[in-house]
Nucleic acid binder design. Structure first.
Lengths: 209, 209
DNA sequence: AATCATATCCCCGAAAAACATGAATTTCAT
DNA sequence: ATGAAATTCATGTTTTTCGGGGATATGATT
């Protein structure tokens, strides 16, 4: 039995690329494509494919959110995430939102066929590269929970403010800042400010710039 | 007169996508494709296209380096950079290495045709989105040059070592470390250690973990 | 021969951070 | 309303960093 697929991606080249990969494949039926979330949802009201290939980058909405909506509205549809790079956080969110698989855009026809067959059997599929990356990266999602104030102080520390400067800025005494600082060192298990800032950036507790 | 093109990209979908976009275009002749730098260079020994569409992500070599090599060996060939995202640093490096243009992979057939014609006339072509982004982003790639020793010390600072600990580890006196430290603060224009570590991570002078 | 970058070392004093200990107050969810 | 968590503040001591200096040695460059 043929597998029907629908693709959502704002890259014409990707759409054409996949269409071309499967145009002579009898087991795969190309139902169409959408270049944004809105027209994807509109299409699904008319017709349900077996599999949706869903890019994580769309102009009007993230593919991650769209995935969730699709799975809520049409739980039987299999969604396969599509992305150029294997960014762990995206993959995790995509799978958490009900995706059945995740393949990179450098996938071969065979790999894609594989992914279709696997998810149609109800199992999850991850590109070889993706699976490998995820394994090698059990790195910390062990970010401690910081309070509102601690986050503020952490940001200011990374900007190079001293306790006195922060105290002035936040209208509290320097002792208070000192306490927050000590708690931050404890929570992040850092030996000193230098390590604190590094860990904070790694764990994405503060953002760049 | 028809324009001959050759594409280098490790994404099958992109190759197929572009091929399909131009398969009925009489003014464009598809000479072939390569999925890595080595086979690209091998092809060019046999035949020279007018335009090479060059992905910035290749398995064996960065497209940026490959671009430089190509322009050194065959200065008459026009290289157009290809990328999914518009990352300013890549674009700048690509153009600095002699590329004639830069287009995003979500380009339409028309946009690509446009880029071909523009670069064939000897002018540079940037995707609309890319040009816009570059304008809005004159942010700094002003990473200072650090000496071998300074990099070592910087790494250790970020790991949370004190001057004494570093001195022991590097078999020098604490005074030496102190000097390096001061020089680092100067070079990165940081107010203190906290800002130093943050800037070092932003400017990729030290890597995560 | 003179210059430059790098790396090494030293001293001083002021400023800042780290560590310890204790405690009052507000906020908020159960 | 009660208890836990968060925020606030203080007082001290010790360690580390920061900002001025200045000095020597080496090797590459000109």
């Amino acid at each position: 039995m043929a597998i029907s697929i629908f693709i959502v991606d704002d890259h014409y080249m990707v759409i054409e690329g996949i269409r071309s990969l499967f145009q002579h494949e009898k087991n795969v039926v190309w139902l169409g494509h959408a270049t944004n979330a809105a027209s994807c949802l509109a299409f699904l009201k008319q017709q349900l494919p077996d599999i949706i290939l869903l890019d994580i980058n769309l102009p009007d909405k993230s593919g991650i959110d769209l995935c969730k909506e699709i799975k809520t509205l049409y739980p039987t549809v299999c969604v396969i995430g599509l992305s150029t790079f294997n960014q762990q956080s995206f993959i995790e969110k995509m799978m958490a939102n009900g995706a059945s698989g995740y393949v990179l855009k450098n996938a071969t026809q065979k790999e894609l066929m594989d992914s279709f067959e696997t998810v149609m059997k109800g199992r999850a599929y991850l590109s070889h590269e993706v699976a490998q990356m995820l394994r090698s990266n059990e790195a910390a999602d062990d970010a401690p929970v910081l309070t509102r104030r601690e986050k503020e102080v952490l940001e200011l520390i990374a900007e190079g403010l001293t306790n006195n400067e922060m105290a002035e800025k936040l209208f509290v005494s320097a002792s208070t800042i000192d306490t927050h600082r000590k708690n931050l060192l404890m929570k992040l298990n850092a030996k000193n400010t230098a390590e604190l800032v590094k860990l904070a950036l790694i764990k994405k507790l503060i953002s760049f710039s």
